[in-house]
């Protein structure tokens, strides 16, 4: 274990080192971007939900996307993954233009996302949810499906992979249960594990910690670090500043649809523009300092 820890630390260190020379300003170019977005705009009627001039996501790093409620984070996720159509803009994934590509194709080429409102398939068992995530399954083709001998062995190996992940996410005792019988936090875990079944190159997690208890949070942080160790690029939306602080190599801040700040966690959380965006202008509080969360500090102020 200490050895693993050392490896993990060194990967984290190298991910951070790659970004250390990057200037902390919105839209800054990265040394090795997996995704680059330009002029992405989406409005709902008169409201411009997303208006991102330029943003790059560093390969192999854990990037946090933060911002107050309604900042446009989820909408940005939806646009990038093809679940919503941008009014304008282009973006590349692995140097390939992917704006306008069907969402299932984006998932196939390695851009897999989870949802803020969890989408565990509740009428299916946990293991079936997991199996659904695996790519290139012969038995998913119509004519092959009716000939089980064509896909039985693949089904078995998919099942083994699923069991491995379920164990990692502490869901292995729920294998045969309907996903609908899981708790909210367990569904988040299942959704994340299911996304990993698809071997993503870039995994995009929309609030993975929402509704997860503190003890589990720690192990979730571990899982996300493990993803990075295995070479997966992680982009996640999160409101829990401590978590953002703990695991992210880079933080991008959105407010009112625009990227207003970028940088390593320490730098960003001291940024006055970020504090203003979260707490309103002329506010003294800091986002994290002694570990108290944002809500606690604002509660303290209003009291």
């Amino acid at each position: 274990m200490p050895n693993d820890q050392a490896v993990s630390d060194s990967i984290a260190a190298s991910a951070r080192a790659a970004l250390s020379a990057v200037e902390p300003r919105p839209g800054v170019p990265k040394p090795d971007p997996i995704m680059v977005a330009d002029h992405v705009r989406r409005s709902f009627g008169g409201l411009t939900a997303v208006n991102v001039e330029h943003v790059e996501i560093q390969r192999g790093a854990i990037t946090a996307l933060i911002g107050p409620n309604g900042a446009g984070k989820t909408t940005f996720f939806n646009l990038i993954t093809g679940f919503d159509d941008a009014n304008e803009g282009t973006w590349t994934f692995n140097d390939r233009q992917v704006a306008g590509t069907a969402p299932y194709k984006l998932a196939r080429i390695g851009m897999v996302r989870t949802f803020q409102l969890t989408k565990a398939l509740s009428r299916m068992t946990v293991i079936d949810n997991m199996r659904l995530g695996a790519k290139h399954q012969t038995g998913e083709r119509f004519f092959a499906a009716i000939l089980p001998f064509l896909w039985n062995s693949q089904e078995k190996s998919v099942g083994q992979k699923a069991m491995g992940l379920l164990e990692r996410f502490n869901l292995h005792e729920k294998v045969g249960d309907f996903a609908g019988s899981l708790s909210g936090g367990q569904r988040k875990l299942l959704e994340m594990a299911r996304a990993l079944m698809a071997d993503p190159e870039l995994i995009m997690l929309d609030e993975p910690m929402a509704g997860v208890n503190p003890a589990l949070k720690q192990s979730l942080l571990g899982h996300i670090k493990t993803m990075r160790e295995e070479g997966t690029t992680v982009l996640f939306v999160e409101h829990d500043m401590d978590m953002v602080h703990d695991i992210s190599d880079w933080v991008i801040v959105m407010a009112q649809g625009e990227v207003i700040a970028e940088g390593p966690p320490d730098t960003v959380m001291k940024d006055q523009a970020v504090i203003d965006a979260y707490l309103g202008a002329h506010h003294e509080a800091q986002l994290t300092e002694t570990g108290e969360s944002l809500t606690e500090s604002s509660d303290g102020d209003s009291a």
Binding site: Y104, A107, A120, M124, D128, L132, Q137
Partner: peptide, 24 residues
């Protein structure tokens, strides 16, 4: 079969199935 798993997934939530790379 895995084909059936996909259609049952679609019945419940298309977006989830799309997000896993299936041509719903």
């Amino acid at each position: 079969s895995p084909w059936g798993r996909i259609v049952r997934g679609i019945r419940e939530d298309e977006a989830a199935v799309v997000s896993l790379g299936k041509n719903v």
